[in-house]
């Protein structure tokens, strides 16, 4: 299925949970925050949130800044 991840189209095998997507992408869930269709997810809901065709996902972390 097709989703939009950080502004770019991405083809993934799905449907998957947010946690499963992070595992696929090799991203440590403790270090990121996620927005799912413009709603920020609580970390506790990563396991129970399902990503579906056409969903928009933003995965962010902290970088250097002032």
């Amino acid at each position: 299925m097709k989703i939009k991840l950080n502004g770019d189209p991405l083809e993934i095998a799905g449907p998957v949970t947010v946690s499963a997507l992070l595992t696929q992408l090799d991203i440590d869930a403790r270090r990121v925050a996620i927005e799912h269709n413009l709603m920020v997810l609580k970390r506790a809901s990563f396991d129970s949130t399902h990503i579906r065709e056409g969903d928009q996902i933003e995965i962010v972390n902290f970088v250097g800044g002032g």
């Binding site: 950080n6 770019d8 995965i59 962010v60 902290f62 970088v63």
Partner: peptide, 11 residues
């Protein structure tokens, strides 16, 4: 700190 998109292609 700043908040930015994770670089998906370069982990």
């Amino acid at each position: 700190v700043a908040v930015r998109r994770v670089n998906i292609s370069d982990r």
